[in-house]
Amino acid sequence: MHRGKGMKFVGDSRVPAERKPNIPKDYSEFPGKTEAFLPNFLLKEWLVGAVFLVGYLTLTVAHASPLEAPADPTNTSYIPLPDWYFLFMYQLLKYEFASGPYTVIGALVIPGIAFTALLIAPFLDTGKDRRPAKRPIATGMMLMGLVSVTFLTWESVITHDWAAAAEQGKIQETPTADIDENDPGYQVFQAQSCVNCHGDALQGVPNVGPSLIGTGLAPEEIADIAQNGVGSMPAGQFQGSDEELQQLAEFISALEPE
């Protein structure tokens, strides 16, 4: 056969001499295995997402959020607790080498080393074998990270005072009373700086002084407490006259919650 008569030459044997149009395959050729992204696949994704959304909203309505009392920056006895996925870092900051003057080690250095190790792990282990035994670097780093996070999370859970945390987070209604600001007893109350510990409406100040509304105490008992103290209240707080003390005691004793 002579050249040019029935023969075709191409530069690369992998390139077909006759090009065919790039027509997508008909999905009907693979029933149950392939499908069009729009609208078939996308509709399935939306359906699954809608089911999870309805379930999430149902749980939200059925179980109210565990709200606590308003945050008080002056309360140094509050026991904080982050969400469960941060418990391991919370526990890390309890150790001496990562807290106090070394907080930067627990907050930045150690997490930075862990993040860097995770970032460079693919470059340290470039082997093609996927079996864990054949990938000692990646497997060792994964196990070390998993054990560390699990241990720190467990330590944080078992060392947390759950009973005290439940009590401190309770929302308590603040008692109120109809206060006559022109009452001589209230004037004495303000003059003696009792407002600083018990509030201007005698409703109390959290972690400082209790409410003085509805104490159920007689005037004599209140006068004795004002002079001699009780609990965390030291003695000698009242500096007025006996008449002012009597007015103050009678005023507080008569207060009843609304």
Rank of each mutant, 00 (worst) to 15 (best):
V230T: 12
P16L: 08
S77P: 05
G6M: 14
A177F: 04
G55V: 01
E167I: 09
V147C: 10
F189K: 00
A166P: 02
L202E: 01
G231P: 02
L92T: 02
E68L: 08
P206A: 07
F151P: 00
L47V: 11
A107E: 09
P206H: 07
K94V: 00
Y27T: 15
S156N: 08
G169D: 07
T176N: 09
S156K: 01
L81D: 03
L43M: 15
P257D: 09
A17F: 11
K5A: 14
L93V: 03
L47K: 14
K94R: 15
F97I: 08
I171R: 14
T215Y: 03
S99D: 09
Q203W: 05
F52L: 15
S28V: 06
A249M: 01
N207E: 14
P136Q: 01
G229E: 07
G231I: 05
L93H: 08
E244A: 10
L245H: 06
L217M: 12
E250H: 05
S211F: 04
N182V: 00
F151N: 04
T126M: 12
V205F: 05
V195Y: 00
I225H: 08
N75A: 10
L108H: 10
F189D: 00
I110P: 06
R14K: 14
T60W: 11
A165L: 05
V54P: 02
D12Y: 07
M89A: 10
E18F: 13
E155W: 00
F52Q: 10
L67A: 14
S193R: 13
C197K: 01
Q237H: 04
A117G: 14
L108W: 12
I158L: 03
H160Y: 14
M144C: 13
P16Q: 10
L47M: 14
F52E: 09
V54F: 10
V208Q: 04
G11M: 09
I213A: 03
K5N: 13
G140T: 13
I171P: 02
F123V: 11
F251I: 05
T103H: 09
K5F: 13
N228K: 13
D180W: 06
A36L: 15
Q91C: 07
L57K: 02
W154E: 02
A17R: 08
M144S: 15
S77R: 09
V15M: 09
K33V: 12
L93T: 08
H2E: 14
P101Q: 09
V54N: 04
G240R: 02
D129E: 15
L67H: 11
I113A: 11
L67R: 13
N228I: 03
L245W: 01
A254R: 15
G6E: 12
I179A: 07
F41T: 15
I137P: 06
L53G: 04
T174C: 06
Y27C: 09
P175R: 06
F189A: 00
G4I: 06
R3W: 12
A201T: 09
G145R: 02
Q192A: 12
A98K: 01
R131Y: 11
F123T: 11
V48M: 10
P122E: 07
D72E: 09
G140K: 07
L81S: 09
S148K: 01
T76K: 14
S253K: 03
S148I: 01
Y78M: 10
E243R: 10
A98L: 01
L59G: 06
E18R: 13
P184G: 08
I222G: 04
T103A: 15
G216Q: 07
S28C: 02
E243M: 08
P80H: 05
Q246R: 11
G100T: 06
P175Y: 04
G231A: 07
I252L: 08
